[in-house]
């Protein structure tokens, strides 16, 4: 384990990814350190202004400072990612663990469920869900959770199936340790690294997905400064006021890229094949 962490320090993409991510986290935690402007106050005398001294990125269609909106929008990106991860990882792990460990009806049923949800197109189902139930960032998060837990379940199931044949598990069973304790205290820690890996790779997907939903008007509603919905509003002014599109899109790109960099780096470190 220690060797792996050390290897991570040396891996270029992880370092780059983490620095980028750290920057974003800092921005999300203390946005006021980066900008004095408010992302919410409109200023009708200064709408759609290009970049100038007072507004580094210019202003949007209501005169709000674009840079400030991007800075404050970082929070929403992290809120989404964290909410989704906090729910899907334990959920996916539990379902996958039960599916792999138990061979009874429940285990089989859950196993089938995992296969089903793996085979469904995430974005389309999420769109259908939000469009039916109602728009808003909470519903978008819920929709993403519903479609995103399956990969973790599959990973866990595969790992559990493999591990439960091992000797030390048989010893524990003989000792009379309950299944849930075996699962959570002994098997779980061994599954962590592939789950982490998957999580980092998926996090960039969550950001893109919530941005996509926001773009269609299904995610965060105005006046929240969420990047996807900012792009949706900016779509109308793209020809003449290109900065409204470029900067929020660039922010999405950079944050997503940071997660991908970390994920890729971790992949080469953890799988140790050097690919």
């Amino acid at each position: 384990m220690y060797k792996q962490v050390l290897a991570m320090y040396n891996n270029k993409s992880i370092v780059l990814g983490f620095s980028l991510l750290a920057l974003f986290i800092l921005v999300a935690l203390v946005p006021t350190m980066f900008t004095r402007q408010s992302p919410y106050t409109p200023n009708f005398d200064n709408i759609l202004a290009p970049a100038n001294g007072q507004h580094i990125f210019g202003t949007d269609e209501l005169g709000r400072d674009l840079f400030a909106r991007i800075i404050f929008g970082t929070r929403y990106a992290f809120i989404v990612v964290l909410s989704v991860c906090i729910v899907t990882i334990p959920l996916g792990f539990t379902i996958g663990a039960i599916a792999g460990y138990k061979q009874n009806f429940i285990g089989n049923f859950l196993s089938r469920m995992i296969d089903v949800f793996l085979a469904l197109p995430k974005l389309i189902i999420a769109m259908a869900l939000v469009a039916s139930v109602g728009v808003g960032i909470k519903n978008a998060i819920f929709a993403i959770i519903l479609t995103a837990w399956a990969p973790y379940a599959r990973l866990t199931r595969a790992n559990v199936l493999q591990l439960k044949q091992q000797d030390f598990i048989l010893v524990l069973k003989l000792q009379g340790v309950s299944s849930s304790r075996i699962l959570f205290r002994f098997i779980a820690p061994l599954c962590l690294s592939p789950i982490f890996l998957q999580a980092f790779l998926d996090m960039s997907g969550y950001i893109l997905m919530v941005a996509g939903l926001g773009f269609l008007g299904l995610g965060a509603q105005p006046p929240l400064p969420e990047w996807g919905s900012m792009l949706a509003n900016a779509k109308d002014y793209i020809l003449t006021h290109w900065w409204l599109i470029t900067y929020p899109g660039g922010a999405i790109l950079l944050l997503s890229l940071s997660f991908n960099l970390i994920g890729e780096g971790m992949q080469s470190v953890l799988t140790n094949k050097g690919f």
Binding site: K235, D236, Y237, L239, T240, H241
Partner: peptide
């Protein structure tokens, strides 16, 4: 999309755009 209408008008692919938003 109003911006697409703007784009097409600019390129001469359409003669009249009815739903533009920004008139600068």
């Amino acid at each position: 999309e109003p911006s697409t209408q703007h784009l097409l008008l600019d390129k001469g692919d359409i003669d009249i755009a009815r739903n533009l938003l920004s008139f600068n």
